Amino acid sequence: MSNQDVNALAEKDSRSTHKRSSGWRAFYKKLSRNKAALIGGYLILSFILIAIFGPLLTQHDPTKVNYSIKLLSPSAEHWFGTDHNGRDVFTRIVHGMSITLWVGFLSVMVGAIVGIPLGIFSGYYGGRVDSLIMRLMDILLAFPGILLALALVSVLGGSLTNVVIAVGIFSVPAFARIVRGSTLAARKLEYIDAVRALGSSDMRIIFKHILPNILSPIIVQATLRIATAILTASALSFLGLGAQPPTPEWGAMLSDGRSYMFDHPHVALYPGLAIVIVVLAFNIFGDGLRDALDPKMKK
């Protein structure tokens, strides 16, 4: 390879890197206009860091029972107090962060992996394929999400793995419908007709040309869906169908603390606040993403 070829490749790579960098700066600029969304994004980043490094920094065992210090009020030793089994509430919340995020991200990933192909095939092929897939989605949508998840977990059994599967299944229709709508709009574009006229296969058109152009609504839907998944998983654990004792899952902690809400409110207060803050952060960040990624928004 000649020096000219090497220089040309280097220049091309430099232009590509600069273009990506400019795109990220423009996206961040649009996102930063929504201060609430920016705060939500920073909160989510801090949650991820807490989930990774938080357990390494805590001093107490999240599952060790010590009845001699049960139901202590918040103090310098126990920031959020202790529960009815003498376990440090703050430590359990920190350890529960990774569980909550794991359930939220993984369940949405399951819903996306199933729902996105169904939505694309439905919107691209239309006809009987579209009717069959959408009627199946309508059947799933006929059940309220929490009731569908509750029924699935009741059949599969109470565990975090089954919660992920149940929440993932009830997330499928949301992804399928939004992807179908985006695909219906994308397949009518002129460049899709041009690519088809050049002899590209359906799979190449779908996954190389249509899917990359409908990622924006998918990303927004995934972000908002994580909040719903976390809330649903916490509700299932609250009912005793999710994480099993002594796992420090926030919904289960909230369920344990409801018996002490009047005499020792800290046992239920802090897990409840943790759920509210995480869900709120994903919701406001998702709203900001929708505005930043929407090409129809005014610059």
Rank of each mutant, 00 (worst) to 15 (best):
I52W: 04
F53K: 00
G54Q: 00
G54C: 03
P55V: 01
P55I: 00
L56N: 15
L57V: 11
L57P: 06
T58F: 04
T58S: 14
T58M: 11
T58A: 09
Q59I: 06
Q59K: 11
H60D: 14
D61M: 09
D61C: 06
P62Q: 01
P62G: 07
P62E: 00
P62L: 02
P62C: 06
P62F: 02
P62H: 02
P62S: 05
T63N: 14
T63C: 09
T63M: 14
K64Y: 13
K64T: 06
K64S: 13
K64I: 11
V65Q: 13
V65S: 10
V65R: 12
N66V: 00
N66P: 01
Y67L: 15
Y67G: 10
Y67W: 12
Y67D: 09
S68G: 12
I69D: 03
I69L: 02
I69K: 02
I69P: 02
K70A: 14
K70L: 08
K70D: 06
L71W: 10
L71S: 06
L71V: 00
L71Q: 13
L71E: 08
L71I: 05
L71G: 06
L72V: 01
L72N: 12
L72F: 02
S73G: 11
S73C: 10
P74H: 10
P74C: 10
S75R: 08
S75D: 12
S75Q: 08
A76Y: 03
A76S: 12
A76Q: 09
E77A: 05
E77W: 01
E77H: 00
W79M: 08
W79G: 06
W79K: 11
F80Y: 09
F80E: 00
F80D: 01
F80W: 08
F80L: 10
G81K: 02
G81Y: 04
G81C: 06
T82H: 07
T82E: 03
D83P: 03
D83T: 05
H84K: 14
H84P: 01
H84W: 11
H84F: 14
H84E: 15
H84D: 15
N85V: 07
G86I: 00
G86E: 00
